[in-house]
Design a protein around this nucleic acid. Structure first.
Lengths: 140, 140
DNA sequence: GCTTGATCTGGACCTCGCTCTAGATCGTAG
DNA sequence: CTACGATCTAGAGCGAGGTCCAGATCAAGC
């Protein structure tokens, strides 16, 4: 890949914000916090140019954040990747631990869901009966 | 129910903390924030006594919080209940809206889960092959 | 050359949801 | 009566995760 091809593929911070759903503020913040694998390239004028690699990494970050991974863990993961090959076992462990948390979270949410569904049914029935009995009781 | 029966069923803040998983600090905080349906009863000495009703309400609160309902919404819900019968439709709406958010959240988490599973598989394979290729690439 | 909009930096500030502190009081066991 | 642990109030503090601001610079179009 030539320099110009690379330049053509690279994106400004605004474009990356659009593609990742992160704000430009958040992108700069993530960078400061060391969440990126490599320092972002700059134009001669000092503007950031993100490579497709950067964007893909950020998309993974977004998914991990969405699922509740703390920034500190994300930073640790980035450090491992930055450090290069040889620590795949640790990366694996990090991800697998997180997957377990996600599983637990899904389960918890499904429980919440059924509690809510139950409550919704209660109110729906109440309304159907013309709200004849006004008293709210937690279990009914 | 006599007074003494009610008193026997009522719990101290510490007992409620145990049963709900909230800290005593959080319990007092929730009360200050108006998240309870009714003001908590007090002993002659000024200590809080929670009724079974209070505890059940708090357990619902915990479930709703766990599933990401903001305190502001919880407060609103409490206000509706406090205000008594006649607003069941609004309560229903509040809960149903939240359920939709929970559903979306579950779906998002499942997506995250599959992304993570994929990544885990990549690293596992990598390790199985003796980490022959060290290059990390976001998609592989 | 000039305007306009995007981006730059460093640091202050914000919201949320608690958590903790200090200093006083209650209440129960010895 | 004395200890001692639980609880009380008001209010300060905290950690996470950004968000926003000021003032300057860059880059593209007219």
């Amino acid at each position: 890949m030539t320099n110009s091809e690379a330049a053509a593929q690279s994106l400004s911070i605004g474009e990356v914000a659009e593609r990742t759903g992160l704000s430009v503020h958040a992108l700069r913040f993530y960078e400061r916090e060391g969440l990126l694998v490599a320092p972002v390239q700059r134009t001669s004028g000092g503007r950031r140019r993100y490579t497709p690699f950067d964007v893909e990494w950020l998309l993974v970050c977004v998914k991990l954040r969405e699922s509740g991974m703390p920034l500190a863990d994300l930073k640790h993961f980035a450090e491992l990747v930055r450090h290069g090959p040889g620590n795949e076992a640790e990366r694996l462990h990090l991800l697998d631990t997180h997957r377990q948390r996600v599983d637990a979270q899904i389960q918890a949410l499904e429980e919440c869901r059924s509690v809510i569904t139950w409550k919704v049914a209660v109110y729906t029935e109440h309304l159907a009966r013309g709200a004849a009995e006004g008293l709210w009781a937690p279990t009914t």
